[in-house]
Amino acid sequence: MAENGVGASVRRKEDYRFLTGKGSYTDDLNVVGQTHAYFVRSPHAHATINSIDTAAAAAADGVVAVLTGDDLAADGIGPLICGVNVTSDDGEPHRAPVHSALAQGKVNYVGDHVAVVIAETLAEAKDAAEKVEVDYGILPAVTDTATAADDDQQQIHEVAPNNQCYNWPFGDKAAVDAAFESAHKVSSLDLVNNRMVTNPMEPRAAAGEYNSGTEEITLHLTTQNPHVHRLVMSAFNQLAPEHKLRVVGPDVGGGFGVKIFRVLRRVGCRLGLP
């Protein structure tokens, strides 16, 4: 075995910078001319957006811009995608509602993105965000996992009747049922797998810079996979061509899945792996 080679508990090379406060996380970036974004989020779990009035916010101290889903659509920025197809028992692909990065016409959970305020300071952005006036038409909310697909539940997405994304059976039901019929003993259990919030200690962050000379966007992100992030923002969201978009995942303070971007484009679902 080489010294410090395979099998050695080598002390980590990255630790010195973290232990001396010299790590470089996304929020540590402070560049000249930097502005701060703050999102106006839905206070309602389920509501139509009848109108958004940004005039007062746009006129507030320090505000650079107030942008909504209409601005996003006007610039041709595509919706967020889901990458994996699961075929439902009716032979159809899973139901996939459109997910715009800023809401268009409707919000579907508390915290949903309604508008973004960009201002000279974060405090000013927050002050102005309170001045964005949104007229909501509140709808009943669906929150319970077990009953979400019941007939009497409020519909959330038109494309998904009974709030069902898919129903996916797998295995030889007849053979399994037969084995149960002839079993000596059957044990059963009902259980809940509780919803968790992943909670890496570093909250998510993004810092973007545009160079109008080279027409390149540099985006620092709390990401577990910068290349795939770039690929998707380029190929699916039309943010910029791949070679004009640089994505940097600097020091990232924990991921645990919540900062992943993975793309598995649907081509249909065939089963039976080697």
Binding site: R11, R12, E14, D15, Y16, R17, F18, L19, T20, G21, G23, Y25, P200, M201, E202, D251, V252, G253, G254
Partner: peptide, 18 residues
């Protein structure tokens, strides 16, 4: 104390470390 954190692998992502 910094040295002890390094010697004992008392940090991973480094965010809570300071």
């Amino acid at each position: 104390m910094q040295q002890a954190f390094k010697d004992n692998h008392g940090l991973q992502c480094g965010f809570c470390t300071p």
